[in-house]
């Protein structure tokens, strides 16, 4: 196994990690912690990209499409 398929297990683990990160972000007790976790999410999403992840193209994509409002994550 020498190509992108070998990264599928990593991709699945990262997706689980991301779900946990989102929970932490949504429950963050301060804006500072919430923002730091958003930055962490951006870097985590880059790791998913290296795995050939195609379900989303950028971290906030799903949210933006739901309500079409400016999303502070992006700044």
């Amino acid at each position: 196994m020498s190509h992108i398929a070998e990264l599928e297990a990593t991709r699945q683990s990262l997706l689980a990690l991301r779900a946990g990160l989102h929970r932490q972000r949504d429950e963050a007790p301060t804006p500072g912690i919430a923002h730091a976790l958003r930055l962490a999410d951006a870097y985590l999403f880059m790791a998913l990209g290296y795995c050939g992840h195609n379900d989303q193209l950028f971290p906030e994509e799903g949210h933006v499409e739901v309500d079409r409002t400016p999303f502070p994550n992006l700044r």
Binding site: H3, I4, Y50, G52, N54, L57
Partner: peptide, 23 residues
């Protein structure tokens, strides 16, 4: 990122098409 950087052309093309369709 060895897995993508050295992937065969047909694998790369499949990932590209999926991403392009999504985009």
């Amino acid at each position: 990122n060895r897995p993508t950087q050295t992937a065969p052309r047909e694998v790369l093309d499949a990932v590209h098409l999926e991403r392009i369709q999504h985009l």
